[in-house]
């Protein structure tokens, strides 16, 4: 069975890779199998983890046996019924006449997520980042353990450059994404510096992604040459 599984995996891997040559029946077959299995897989995951695992098991908790052989019972979580009602309302979309009711659960989902995201992003991605950007550019005072007195410690050239890049990049990037003013004059010039920084960031990001994609390819090459054919020692 293990041999069969390895051959199937190799067959499908090569089928998908064959797209690099051109679209062909082997690719189409691999694609169809992938799409079908993944859709089925997600259905199964959602059913067992959400509907059965979370909802059903939450309302009617299974009795569990601990290592000492005792029965461990849990209290039913009836709050899950609220979710179930909202979920059922969502399905009313299938009945055109009362389909509009399905907007309520949708509003609930969007409202909850927005509330959570608002604080998460505002706190972690805005406030904390502004705080981290407030920094001295040339040096700072530190406690000298030898004399127990504060002494000025100048940054190295590389540190000053690094801090400048951070501060200027953050500021000009914000200017670029400021939509209430036309990009003209000094403001436009600053925005241009901002897009310059953004593009450099994208370049770095591109490089990292190439690394990531190559890693995936290496993983597959290792599978084909080592796990499948055993050509690599």
């Amino acid at each position: 069975m293990e041999h069969f599984a390895v051959w199937v995996a190799a067959f499908l891997t090569l089928g998908i890779v064959s797209f690099l040559y051109k679209d062909n029946p082997w690719y189409k077959l691999s694609e169809a199998i992938f799409v079908g299995i993944s859709a089925g897989y997600w259905f199964v995951v959602l059913f067992w983890d959400n509907i059965y695992g979370k909802f059903w098991n939450g309302i009617f908790p299974e009795e569990l046996i601990d290592s000492a052989g005792n029965v461990v019972t849990r209290e039913p979580d009836y709050w899950l019924l609220v979710g179930a009602v909202l979920g059922t309302l969502m399905l009313l979309r299938l009945i055109p006449k009362i389909g509009w009711i399905s907007r309520w659960p949708l509003a609930f989902i969007i409202g909850c997520t927005s509330g959570l995201y608002l604080i998460n992003y505002f706190s972690s991605n805005m406030m904390r980042q502004v705080e981290a950007t407030i920094m001295p550019l040339v040096g700072h005072w530190v406690l000298d353990p030898a004399t127990s007195q504060n002494a000025f410690s100048a940054f190295s050239g590389a540190d000053i450059f690094s801090n400048l890049v951070l501060v200027i990049g953050t500021f000009t990037g914000l200017v670029y994404f400021y939509f209430s003013k036309e990009h003209r004059g000094a403001f436009g010039g600053t925005a241009k510096v901002g897009i310059f920084f953004i593009m450099i960031t994208f370049g770095a990001s591109f490089g990292y992604t190439v690394m990531s994609r190559m890693s995936l390819l290496i993983g597959r090459a290792d599978f084909l040459l080592f796990d499948w054919l055993g050509l690599v020692r």
């Binding site: 041999h3 051959w7 080592f226 499948w228 054919l229 055993g230 050509l231 690599v232 020692r233």
Partner: peptide, 13 residues
């Protein structure tokens, strides 16, 4: 190659 690995015990290059 596969048979060499599985049956023949070929350890790779």
């Amino acid at each position: 190659a596969y048979l060499a690995k599985v049956v023949g015990g070929f350890e790779g290059v």
